[in-house]
Amino acid sequence: METESFIETPLGIAQIRGSKEGISSISILNEKEPANLSDKVPDELKTAVKQLQEYFKGKRTEFDFNVNPSGTDFQKKVWKELLQIPFGKTCSYMDIAKKLGDPKCIRAAASANGKNPLWIVVPCHRVIGSNGELTGYAGGLWRKKWLLDHENPVKQQSLF
Score class of each variant (00 low, 15 high):
1 M>W: 11
3 T>R: 03
6 F>E: 02
7 I>N: 04
10 P>S: 09
10 P>K: 08
10 P>Y: 06
12 G>L: 09
12 G>Y: 09
14 A>R: 03
15 Q>Y: 05
17 R>D: 10
20 K>W: 10
20 K>G: 02
21 E>A: 13
24 S>W: 00
24 S>M: 00
24 S>K: 13
26 I>D: 04
29 L>I: 04
30 N>E: 15
30 N>P: 02
32 K>Y: 12
38 S>V: 12
39 D>K: 14
39 D>F: 14
43 D>H: 13
44 E>M: 08
44 E>L: 06
45 L>W: 05
48 A>D: 03
49 V>M: 05
50 K>C: 06
51 Q>I: 05
52 L>T: 03
53 Q>P: 02
55 Y>L: 03
55 Y>N: 03
55 Y>W: 04
56 F>I: 02
57 K>I: 00
57 K>G: 03
58 G>Y: 02
60 R>Y: 00
62 E>H: 08
65 F>Y: 09
68 N>H: 08
72 T>E: 10
72 T>D: 05
74 F>L: 14
78 V>C: 01
80 K>G: 11
82 L>M: 14
82 L>S: 04
84 Q>L: 12
87 F>G: 05
90 T>P: 00
91 C>W: 14
92 S>E: 03
94 M>D: 14
95 D>H: 14
95 D>A: 12
99 K>H: 13
99 K>D: 15
101 G>K: 07
101 G>Y: 07
103 P>W: 02
107 R>C: 07
109 A>W: 07
110 A>H: 04
113 N>I: 15
115 K>E: 11
117 P>W: 06
120 I>D: 01
121 V>I: 15
126 R>S: 06
126 R>Y: 05
127 V>S: 00
127 V>H: 00
132 G>S: 07
132 G>F: 05
136 G>R: 08
136 G>P: 02
137 Y>L: 08
137 Y>M: 08
139 G>Q: 12
139 G>H: 01
140 G>F: 01
143 R>N: 10
148 L>C: 04
149 D>L: 10
152 N>K: 11
152 N>W: 00
153 P>E: 07
155 K>S: 08
155 K>W: 04
156 Q>F: 10
156 Q>A: 09
156 Q>D: 09
156 Q>K: 13
158 S>V: 09
